[in-house]
């Protein structure tokens, strides 16, 4: 199905960056964790948020998705897990086309992908450990995963280990609404790692934090991702973060593919002009 979609490509009339992106898709090997082809999203009010997006990300690569407000970055990320239903195109995650998946298959697919949100999206009234234990639901089913006070001892120990890895084991019993923004985001990272994901998507993971806390969390986040050899696609408003932490940068503008370049590119100044 994917090769059919690629075969029907029409050469872009826009710019050479788009052409390069499509070439990337064509040359994507079977180790690519994300392959997006011709992805478009139009909301009910006829606003086109994404238009004909193409790119692929090989296993283990960290890719930053950059662009101005309203360029479609978050929508693209959400489309990857069908948290938003794409209007057209193909999304192959971990070798599986997700567009036509049924509910149960989609749940199984989502379970393999960690997702870190800008607003952390933790259950505020519950403890840190309970929130991390939510990640178990990606791997296990049944009553003991719904009620975290009944969680299995091995899961509790693993959750504590994940909290230890993000430096929050000492706050395991604390309620999440008593944490700082940086601590909350670290809990969200621990929850994503608790899934034992094969890849991680992050939507502006440090946007709600001050610069110092943002750098700390980003450092930690990337270290954990690299340690576990995971593929990462993260949205960032911060070009310095994108340049520092990503292997590759993909730029969007007004919902269209604008740029695909290595983070160590010599054209940093032109990148700054576009997105800085």
């Amino acid at each position: 199905m994917f090769s059919d979609a690629v075969a029907t490509f029409q050469p872009p009339v826009c710019n050479e960056v788009s052409v390069r992106a499509r070439e990337n898709v064509r040359t994507a090997t079977s180790t690519a964790d994300i392959e997006i082809t011709g992805l478009s999203k139009t909301f009910d009010n006829s606003r086109r948020v994404l238009q004909d997006i193409h790119f692929s990300i090989p296993q283990g690569q960290a890719v930053a998705l950059i662009g101005h407000n309203g360029s479609g970055k978050s929508t693209l990320l959400r489309c990857c897990l069908r948290l938003i239903q794409p209007s057209s195109g193909s999304i192959v995650l971990l070798g599986k086309e997700i567009i036509g998946l049924g509910k149960a298959e989609l749940r199984d697919m989502r379970a393999q992908v960690g997702f870190v949100f800008q607003r952390h999206n933790l259950v505020q009234r519950l403890s840190v450990l309970t929130n991390v234990l939510h990640g178990v639901q990606a791997r296990k089913k049944g009553l003991r995963t719904w009620f975290q006070s009944m969680a299995m001892q091995e899961d509790r120990e693993e959750a504590m280990a994940k909290l230890q890895s993000v430096g929050l084991a000492h706050l395991a019993g604390q309620r999440v609404d008593q944490l700082s923004g940086g601590e909350s985001q670290r809990v969200a990272i621990a929850r994503a790692l608790m899934q034992r994901p094969k890849m991680v998507l992050a939507d502006e993971p440090v946007a709600s934090l001050d610069p110092r806390a943002g750098d700390e969390v980003m450092n930690l986040f990337l270290r954990r991702i690299k340690d576990e050899g995971l593929t990462l696609l993260f949205v960032s408003h911060n070009l310095d973060h994108a340049l520092s932490y990503a292997d590759r940068i993909i730029g969007l503008r007004d919902g269209k593919f604008e740029l695909d370049a290595p983070a160590k590119s010599e054209n940093i100044e032109s990148l700054r002009e576009l997105y800085g």
């Binding site: 897990l81 379970a111 393999q112 999206n121 259950v123 505020q124 939510h134 639901q137 719904w146 899934q195």
Partner: peptide, 30 residues
């Protein structure tokens, strides 16, 4: 109940029951 944590659990691959008991019910408890 805030839809954010529900979306987060949905993104994890949690079932509807899992999302309800782990997120909606504790948040609505008071």
């Amino acid at each position: 109940v805030d839809s954010g944590p529900q979306e987060a659990l949905s993104a994890i691959g949690s079932s509807n029951n899992g999302t309800f008991f782990s997120c909606v019910l504790p948040a609505a408890a008071p």
